[in-house]
């Protein structure tokens, strides 16, 4: 569903969509190194750290599926669903280096039958929905072609 409309992220500052290496943007505590997503800007999540300084860091583009499901029925607003509605997959993906699990939709056309726990996936950027003026982009997880 690509169009000539301008493409903008559906949320500001959560992921980098330009260039050949799209990735999520996490926050890293400048004191203890703890990583957060979405990017923590006020408080370190580490209970032993009182830092208030964080830098933006790119998160790993690849991870393994922790679990997955789909949305057989149209989710309620504020989700903007396609019309007619087409079910989509959702995955929770473990990033080894960051030691965390991050959710995302499965890439367009990837069904629950196509994935399993432990499968390697990579981050892609796709259209979430389009308005009259623009296409809104979001990160998704796609099985690594093997």
């Amino acid at each position: 569903m690509s169009t000539d409309k301008p493409k903008v992220p559906a949320v500001e500052g959560w992921f980098e969509s330009n260039g050949p290496n799209p990735h999520l943007i996490g926050g890293q505590c400048e004191k203890c190194g703890t990583i957060s997503f979405p990017r923590e800007k006020s408080f370190c999540k580490n209970p032993s750290c009182d830092s208030t300084s964080f830098r933006a860091v790119p998160l790993s583009q690849r991870g393994t599926i922790w679990s997955y499901t789909n949305a057989c029925y149209k989710p309620p607003a504020p989700y903007v669903a396609s019309d007619p509605y087409v079910p989509f997959g959702i995955a929770a993906v473990e990033l080894e280096k960051e030691g965390m699990v991050v959710m995302g939709q499965l890439a367009h056309g990837v069904r629950v039958e196509d994935v399993r726990v432990g499968m390697e996936v990579e981050l892609v950027v796709e259209t979430l929905f389009a308005t009259e003026e623009k296409e809104l982009l979001v990160w998704k997880w796609k099985p690594v072609a093997s």
Partner: peptide, 29 residues
């Protein structure tokens, strides 16, 4: 747009059953 409970519907279409299903599928696998 700063409320995670709003954003999970907006960006992921993740309903409450989405989370229950993630636990269930992991258990199965």
């Amino acid at each position: 747009p700063n409320d995670p409970d709003w954003l999970r519907f907006r960006l992921l279409g993740a309903t409450n059953p989405t989370y229950f299903a993630l636990y269930a599928r992991r258990r199965m696998d």
